[in-house]
Amino acid sequence: MPAKVWTIFRKDLLIELRTKDSLNAMIFFGIVVLVIFNFALEAIRESIRAAVPGVLWVSFAFSGTLGLNRMFAAEKENSCLQGLLMVPVDRGIIYLGKMIAACVFMLLTEAVIFVFSLIFFNLTVWREIPYVVLVCLVGTLGFTAVGALLSAIAANTKMREVLLPLILFPVVLPILVNAVEATAIILNTVDYRQLKLPLTIMTVFTIVFATLAYLLFEYVLED
């Protein structure tokens, strides 16, 4: 099974690395969001550090949605989906491959956005970096666990690009709330034991929805 998941994942990765269609758009959009927040938060420039976790995750979520939107839409445009569906593997495998691909793209984007946020908001971090990486990893896994499933749902509707954020954000709200909370603990406090609760909730969320989506994915892609 891991080999099959890897094949699907590698396919998406290769396509993306050759065209760089979504990755460029995701990164650029994330930075645009940062800049816009910079204007929006003009009034609290003094205490901007407190707002950074929220700004970061809004930017991650928006650019992530952009990437997820492309994932199945691109397959549909070139009728590649039919080909993918003919591959003799369980539909759940396709889901896992897609989810891991989306997760990797989002993590790459997040890394770039994070560096830009350090510059824009004048933050200095060293010791915090491993923890930020951990929170980003868990949060992004949870985000894409739901995102890959809903992206497949939205791809089959007549309003796909518009629909995805509308149905995705209410569902991934627990991830966003806890990721912001965890990032705030890392950036603004010294007691990292508090991280346990948000990380636990995000892990539970990820496991529950990855399992659920793995089982339900065949119904979404049924033809």
């Binding site: 209410p170 909730i201 929805f209 339900l216 119904y219």
Partner: peptide
């Protein structure tokens, strides 16, 4: 019918997690 059944299940499973996370 299929797609909305999937979404209905996802939404209902999500509700308690929303509650616990805030």
């Amino acid at each position: 019918a299929l797609v909305s059944a999937v979404f209905g299940i996802v939404a209902f499973v999500d509700a308690p997690i929303v509650w616990f996370s805030i």
